[in-house]
């Protein structure tokens, strides 16, 4: 069992969720979201790991390979995370230039 990795994953995701729920600064919320994305990526890689496996690149001496598919998925997920972060920061810069603050005051209004 790969406890260190799974504990890291669970911790990163719940720390990120805590940040989104508890923090009021928008920049902080997006930092928390990027931590959460890192956690999810680690989860995918850990699922694909097989104890004793090697990287899925053929190098002459055949061995047991780890699962390549989650690695391909994570490559996609990393770039998507960066895209969302970039757009978010743009909006935050815009919002700050108009209101002079990034504190989130009004809360959820139903």
């Amino acid at each position: 069992m790969m406890w260190p990795e799974y504990i890291t994953v669970a911790a990163l995701i719940s720390i990120g969720l805590y940040g989104v729920m508890a923090k009021k600064n928008l920049m902080k919320i997006f930092i928390a979201l990027s931590l959460m994305e890192t956690g999810v990526n680690l989860l995918l890689i850990t699922i694909g790991y097989i104890p004793g496996g090697t990287a899925p690149i053929e190098n002459g001496n055949f061995a047991k390979y780890v699962d390549p598919l989650p690695q391909a998925l994570v490559l996609t997920a990393i770039v998507i995370g960066l895209s969302v972060t970039a757009l978010a920061l743009t909006l935050l810069i815009w919002y700050h230039s108009k209101t002079g603050t990034l504190e989130y005051r009004r809360g959820m209004r139903w």
């Binding site: 990120g16 994305e37 969302v84 909006l91 935050l92």
Partner: peptide, 12 residues
Amino acid sequence: IKYMILGSVGSS
């Protein structure tokens, strides 16, 4: 921004 926060949590 609100949409984006909830949307990012949702995509994760």
